[in-house]
Amino acid sequence: MIEYATYFGFISIGLAVLMNLHRLIVGPDSINRILALDTLTINTIALFILFGIWQGSSTNFEAALLFAMVGFITTVAFCKYLLRGDIIE
């Protein structure tokens, strides 16, 4: 039963990633693209976790944690750059 649930999860997250890519490409300005990129990283973390459940191994969590941190820092840096024209003043 868990196997089928994971397949459902894979399909729904794949669709979500496709929608994020649509917003990333279409997005009228840079802020929309930043938001799409942030959502893309969160969906990728979900994909990592699902893959860990599917494989039954817990080695993917380090990658997921790193992805969460790098995604957050990326978003903050992009926003700061657009706000101030500089990241570290």
Partner: peptide, 12 residues
């Protein structure tokens, strides 16, 4: 999965 899908659908 459903919540993630709904969130991305809203974003799109």
């Amino acid at each position: 999965g459903v919540f993630a899908l709904v969130g991305s659908f809203g974003l799109s």
